[in-house]
């Protein structure tokens, strides 16, 4: 099973490249932004690339920058969990598809980001293309362009000498666009409103250093209590 995967034909590569291309362009552009941000915080292209290999999640990586100066490891773990929890759902829904992928499935799961999930959960492998090779290459092309983009950004950031005060707003801007897109994509807005208000209230009550954990407890608790209503409203992107 696993052996066949490595017979990658030109046709497989061309098909994977065709699918990945729009994502690769986006990943390079966002990666450049991330690399510049990292560089302005004192972490060059090798750090950005390392983070892209160890973490490989854009949202988690953008937040990680704000934790470099003084964030505790516990806070880092909690934040990463909240941001990355969606991967639980992605991985679960790929279990049946990846069952026959042999050893390469561990790479496919490790590098299963939102965009790769969107591409590969559609099961639209072009005719005549080896499915295993296609899955491997789409995943690999996406991750490689993210890492390459962030390396390039770190390098550019060092070359460009500008006043970088306020560049951290890129994170806020990125999360705001995702927030709006999620709002458009879902019928139930309870989770979106809950995340925003519970965190805001906890920030006011608990101060700037301790609010994340109570916020997360309130969020999970409310989601549990209101499950009936949220599920009957439904309409979440991946339904």
């Amino acid at each position: 099973m696993a052996r066949k995967t490595w017979n990658i034909t030109k046709r497989d590569a061309a098909a994977a490249l065709h699918t990945s291309f729009p994502i690769m362009a986006t990943f390079i552009a966002l990666g450049v932004g991330y690399g510049i941000l990292m560089e302005k915080h004192g972490f060059g292209p090798l750090w950005s690339s390392l983070s892209g290999i160890v973490i490989f999640s854009g949202t988690v990586q953008f937040v990680s920058v704000s934790l470099f100066a003084g964030g505790s490891p516990v806070m880092a773990a909690v934040t990463a969990f909240i941001v990355a929890a969606r991967h639980i759902f992605f991985s679960i829904s790929m279990i049946d598809r990846y069952r026959s992928e042999g050893r390469q499935k561990w790479y496919l799961y490790y590098a299963l980001c939102d965009e790769t999930y969107a591409m590969l959960s559609r099961d639209s492998v072009p005719p005549g293309v080896n499915r295993s090779a296609y899955r491997l290459l789409v995943t690999l092309f996406n991750q490689t362009s993210w890492v390459a983009g962030s390396f390039l950004g770190g390098w550019l950031g060092a070359l460009l000498n500008f006043n970088s005060t306020g560049i951290d707003f890129a994170m806020t801007a990125l999360f705001t666009t995702v927030f709006i897109q999620q709002w458009i994509d879902s019928r139930s807005h309870i989770p979106a409103v809950l995340g925003l208000t519970a965190t805001l209230v906890c920030r006011i009550l608990f101060g700037r250093d301790l609010f994340l954990i109570p916020a997360m407890i309130i969020i999970i608790g409310t989601l549990t209590v209101m499950r009936g209503q949220i599920e009957s409203d439904g309409g979440f992107g991946n339904d």
């Binding site: 949202t59 937040v63 704000s66 934040t79 909240i82 941001v83 929890a85 969606r86 639980i88 759902f89 992605f90 679960i92 951290d168 994170m171 806020t172 999360f175 705001t176 995702v178 927030f179 999620q182 879902s186 989770p191 979106a192 409103v193 809950l194 995340g195 925003l196 208000t197 519970a198 965190t199 805001l200 920030r203 994340l212 916020a215 997360m216 969020i219 999970i220 989601l223 499950r227 949220i230 599920e231 979440f236 991946n238 339904d239």
Partner: peptide
């Protein structure tokens, strides 16, 4: 499965406040 589906929709609001 429910939490994996719904938690992501709470995460962005949390992150905006965090930032």
């Amino acid at each position: 499965v429910y939490l994996g589906k719904v938690v992501p929709y709470t995460a962005m609001g949390l992150l905006i406040v965090y930032c």
